[in-house]
Amino acid sequence: MIMVTTAVARVLAGDELRARRAAAVTERNLVAFRTGGTYWWLVVSGFAEPLLYLLAIGWGVGALVGDMELPDGRVVPYLTFLAPALLAAAAMNGAIAESTMNFFAKMKFAKLYDSVLNTPVTPVEIAFGELGWAMLRGAMYTGAFLVVMVVLDVTSPVRALAAFPAALLVGFAFGALGMAFATLMRSWQDFDYVGIVQFAVFLFSGTFVPVASYPVAMQVLVQVSPLYHGVELIRSITTGTVGWGHLWHLAYLLAAVVLGLAVAARRMARLLLG
């Protein structure tokens, strides 16, 4: 995953040195994670959340719902319909947790970046490095979740492998957007608003029921949600219903990555290099 970050950083910056410095920021988080303590517990407990939702809603509520119809007319158990959406949501939640709360705490309270900026590392490289860690964490969660999906026979191993990069992209998009938001935050209270938006997006992005069953106004509004595009993309992969139309979802997520990074890098330079 560090390799992906470095590769992206290299493309954008055209400078290998910069990529290596961004990787050093990612590495710092790995060291902190490995050192253990409560942060280790926090990261590891993140595995539990999407699995609990999968069991409760997928099995519990799924037993009440029965079967769902896919766009291609196939009828599948509710669990099969829901699992890919929860995978996308897990990627989103993991990325947002790391890129908003933890990022903000490091920037404002721990003053961690003040010391980093005394080294050759620049704000843009910090942004990439932090994102790299958020991705790494997201990759652990989504990887584990995909294994569970295969074990539950919700998807095939090959499709799970194909869904993995798509889930990473969802995490990447939300990590970048989350970091951009974090640089705009004034205090902890603002995170309550992030929480509201995140939860609403989680519930209303075609996650639990097909978007087609929403009221028309909602169907239009949902197009804004990056999670909707992630859910559609991943669900099409794990259920084997991919078509050319899904390129639109892919493009939207990529655009979210670029936008988030651009805003975050610009705001960080302003905040930290006053």
Partner: peptide, 19 residues
């Protein structure tokens, strides 16, 4: 502004990596 999540030694080794 040391890194409170790391040990004394890790503070030095991770900082060296930034260079």
């Amino acid at each position: 502004n040391l890194d409170i999540e790391l040990t004394a030694r890790e503070n030095l080794t991770t900082y060296a990596r930034y260079f």
